[in-house]
Structure formats: structure tokens, C-alpha cells
Amino acid sequence: MSSLASYPEEEIRHAIEVLAATDDELIEEQILAHADLGIGFLVKVRGVDDSVATHELTKALSGLRSVVDPATARAAQATENVWREIADEFGLLKSSEVGELLGASKSNREFASIRRNRGELLGVVRNNGYLYPGFQFDRSTGAIRSWVKPLLELAGEHSMGAADVLFWMMSPTTYFGGDRPADHTNDGDQLLDVARRSWSVEW
């Protein structure tokens, strides 16, 4: 049986995102697609409380018949660290907080999800719900930054999901002299230009 280290980094990251979401139906769909890894793991995941962090979930990987190598464990912890970094530095807003920030009425519970579905807002599944990174908002004006929609459209052209965009925003790049794209949210034109160049690179 193949080691998890043999899978591309993007697949490992997606698997970790699925586990972090702790959504029973989604987890079952992903695991049953690779039933040879063991239904026992699915049972363990179902027993994990929704509030458990990714690094705690990775302990359940010990029940797999395949070897969980140190690289996979490091990938899981690195992913969790990025979530914490976003929360500490920019905030991870719930739907209700997004609505309040953007001036929606308290009764409008669908405000954030409507804009997310329109591709106007970056929302990523986390612990069984959507959270919205704070770097996409101009808090001084109470608005979504103008680059968010075109960035998400560009991501779609490159078959990138919301989680891919989120992690790209938090990853240092030479296009910004080692800074993260999230450090340059005030310059939408430059941010979009860097995204086009970064995502168009073929290896």
C-alpha cells in the first residue's frame, strides 16, 4: 500500500482540510472513495467532537493500515498553524460578524453566504461551518476589498478552490520580495498581477 508521502502536496492539504471540517458526510464521501484505507478510520473520525483541532485529528491516523510518515504529520501541523496565524493576525469571521461588518441587518442571516456563492467573498469551511478571513475586508469603510471578486474569478480559471486561495494569500512569495500576498491587500492591482503570474507558472 502506498505511503501518504507519495501523494502530491495539494492532495495531502485537501485531505487535511476535509478532516478539519469534521463534516460527517464529506468525510465519509472522501474515505469511501478509498475504502481500502479502512472503514475503521471513518468510525474513529465520526467519534471526534467538532471542536477538535486538526493536530488532534491526526492522532486518529494511527488507526490506518498504511504508514503515516513524519512528512504527513508535519503537513497537518503546518496547516493548523496557518489557521491560527490567520485568526490571530487578521481574524476569522463568522457569517454573522461579516454581516455586521458590512452593515447588514441582524435578521439577514444569508448575507455572507449569498455573497460567497456569487464569488464576491472568500469563505472556507472550518469546523463544520464557513469562516471568512479578515484580510479581505476594509474595516475603515465596512466593505469587501475590490480585488476579492476578480481574484476568486482568476482562481476559478486555474481550478483553484477557496482553500487554495487562502493558503496562497498566507504564503511568502518572491513576487513580493518574501512577503505574503496578505501583506499587500491595500494594492489590489499589484495583488492581482502577482496572482496571475504565480498561477500561470507551469512546472
Rank of each mutant, 00 (worst) to 15 (best):
S2H: 10
S2M: 08
S2E: 15
S3T: 11
L4R: 01
A5I: 06
A5D: 12
A5T: 09
S6V: 10
Y7R: 12
P8E: 03
E11K: 11
I16C: 13
V18P: 03
A20C: 14
I27E: 01
E29I: 10
L32D: 04
H34M: 02
A35P: 00
L37S: 02
G40F: 04
V45C: 08
R46H: 08
G47F: 00
S51I: 07
S51E: 15
L57G: 07
S66W: 08
S66T: 11
D69L: 10
A73M: 15
R74Q: 15
A75F: 15
A76K: 06
Q77M: 01
A78Y: 09
T79W: 09
E80I: 06
E80V: 09
N81A: 08
W83R: 10
E85M: 00
I86Y: 01
D88K: 08
E89I: 02
F90N: 11
K94Y: 01
E97Q: 03
G99V: 04
L101I: 02
S105W: 06
S107E: 14
N108D: 14
E110S: 15
S113L: 14
I114N: 15
I114T: 03
I114Y: 13
R115Y: 13
R118C: 01
G119M: 01
G119C: 12
L121T: 02
L121M: 10
L121F: 07
V124D: 03
R126I: 12
G129S: 13
L131I: 09
P133K: 08
S140Y: 05
T141L: 12
G142K: 05
G142Y: 01
S146D: 15
V148E: 08
L152I: 05
E153D: 10
G156Y: 01
G156L: 04
E157W: 05
H158T: 03
S159D: 15
S159N: 15
M160I: 00
D164S: 07
L166S: 10
F167Q: 06
F167T: 04
M169E: 11
P172H: 05
P172I: 12
P172E: 05
P172K: 14
T173V: 03
Y175Q: 05
Y175W: 07
G178N: 09
D179W: 10
D179S: 10
R180H: 04
P181S: 06
A182E: 03
H184I: 06
T185M: 04
D189Y: 10
L191C: 14
L192V: 09
V201G: 00
W203E: 11
